[in-house]
Every structure is written in C-alpha cells, then in structure tokens.
C-alpha cells in the first residue's frame, strides 16, 4: 500500500527551551482564523447597543466637540491658523484607532483564556485581530472627515495619498506594544489595570489636542521618540496639506518614529513567540 507520506504534515512535540524560531508561516496558515476573529470582534462590538454602528462616528465627534470647546475656545491652543475642530479631528482619528487597537490587543488574549487552554492555534492571531478590527471603524469615521473638509473648504493635496502609510504605522505601533502588553498580561494581570492609564498619559504626550509646533524647536526631536507623534503629525500633514507645514517639517520626526516602532514590533514578536508556549499553563 502506498500512501503518499509526503502530504502528511508531521508535528514535533518538544520541550520549550531556548529562543523560539519566529515561524511566521504558522501565522500565514491560520490567516483565515485572523480574518474570522477580526470579523467576530466587529460583529460583537455593537451588538445589543441602541445606536449600533453610529458609535463609530459619535465617538470621535463627541471627543472633537469637547476638545474644541475646552482647548480651542477656552484655552486657545495655537493651531497655526487651522480651525481647531478639524485640527483636532485630524489627530483624533488615528489616535482613537490606536487607543482602541492597543486596548483590544493587550487585553483580549486574557479574555480568550478558555480558548487558549483548550485549542492550539498561533496565539498571535488574537492581538493581530485586535488591531485589524479597528480599521473598519476608522474607515467609517473618515466620512465625517470628508464632511469637515468640505465645510472648512480644505482642498485635498497629493499628501492625502500618504494617509494609509500613517495608518499602517499606527497599526504597527499598536501591534508592537500590544504584543508586549498582552504577553505580560497573561502572567501579570496588573496590565489590565495599567493599560487605561498608559493610554491616557500617552494621549497627552502625543500632540493630539495641541500641535507639535507648540514644543520649542530644540526639544522637538524628543517627540519623535513617541511613534504616535509621527502618526498624528503625519495625519495633519496629509489632510491639511501645506497649509499646516509652514515652519515644520515632519520628515525627520517620522523617520525616528518608524525606527522606534520597528524596534518595538520586532522585539514584541520575539517576546510573544517565546512566552506563548507557556500561555496555556499560566493563563
């Protein structure tokens, strides 16, 4: 009897020792699972809510209104002549995407404890789905942005084509930090409590309600250490065009941001891969 042995996949069981190989092929084999987890996230998020999907639009709009009243009208944050509502909205879009993605990717792993202790699949699928599902929300809230651009008569420039790249950077940043935090969360549930604080503080460290130009020029490179600065300023540059960048060039900032993001992401993948083998035992 000749069975074609070549087609039968062989799995080796071995103790977890030393550095794991990254084995990203595994993840590729389970791409449909990532798709379904993302889809589940979306389906479930607005179920049994009265307003349903409108929350996607309401969230940034309410935020923007509050910021406009507080920082635009009362505190009069300088915006280089840009109307404050669109100035803040352009930054809020990537920020809210990032904050949501980071929260989901760092906490959903522990939420799936039941699954992790019973079924094998690449654990990374869960945080990845966490950052992907926010993209749909993001795309929907772009509608508001288009409306506001029409209202403020902002003529789109070619810069706008760079938007997906900045979004991609936000996604990688959220995933990088999400991988670190979710893996740590399996062991230290403190992370669950910590994440909201991290995000709150991070929001103020990022020029969301103010512009990077508020910071004196010689300290501005420090902002680059926060990859979200590159993303947020990149968004403003892409949406508001040359109107915004009169005396400020986001280029160098952006390069620093990309470097930091890649370092966090790659180390996050390595850390996650090396700890995921013990998840089922300690979760």
């Amino acid at each position: 009897m000749t069975t074609n042995h070549n087609q039968i996949p062989i799995t080796y069981l071995r103790p977890a020792k030393g550095l794991a190989t990254l084995n990203l092929k595994d993840l590729w084999d389970y791409r449909e699972l990532i798709y379904f987890l993302t889809w589940r996230d979306l389906k479930v998020r607005y179920k049994q809510t009265v307003l349903g999907f409108s929350w996607v639009i309401l969230q940034p709009v309410i935020n923007m209104v509050v910021f406009t009243v507080l920082f635009g009208q009362l505190l009069k944050v300088p915006t280089d002549g840009i109307p404050y509502p669109i100035f803040s909205f352009a930054a809020l879009l990537p920020w809210l995407y990032f904050a949501g993605s980071l929260t989901r990717s760092s906490t959903t792993l522990v939420g799936s404890a039941n699954l992790i202790s019973k079924v094998f699949f690449p654990r990374m699928a869960i945080p990845i789905a966490g950052v992907l599902s926010g993209i749909v929300d993001f795309v929907v809230s772009l509608i508001v942005l288009v409306g506001m651009m029409l209202f403020y008569k902002i003529i789109p420039t070619w810069n706008l084509l760079m938007l997906p790249i900045f979004l991609f950077l936000a996604m990688l940043t959220a995933l990088g930090f999400g991988l670190w935090l979710s893996a740590l969360n399996v062991r230290f549930r403190d992370i669950n409590h910590l994440v909201p604080f991290i995000i709150e503080i991070w929001k103020y460290a990022t020029p969301v309600i103010y512009g990077a130009t508020l910071i004196p020029e010689r300290f501005r490179f420090l902002l680059g250490l926060n990859p979200m600065t590159g993303v947020v300023e990149g968004f403003r540059w892409a949406i508001l065009g040359s109107k915004y960048v009169e005396n400020f060039d986001p280029g160098p900032l952006f390069i620093v941001s990309i470097t930091i993001t890649l370092v966090i992401l790659i180390s996050g993948v390595i850390f996650f891969r090396n700890t995921e083998r013990t998840f089922a035992d300690i979760i």
């Binding site: 062989i10 069981l13 202790s117 083998r277």
Partner: peptide
C-alpha cells in the same frame, strides 16, 4: 500542542 512538554519528544503524523 496546546501546551509544551517539560521533557521528552513526540512526533505526530
């Protein structure tokens, strides 16, 4: 493959 063994090896076809 939900959890790794502490020692020993296995082969699953």
């Amino acid at each position: 493959r939900v959890t790794d063994p502490t020692s020993g090896i296995g082969e699953i076809r």
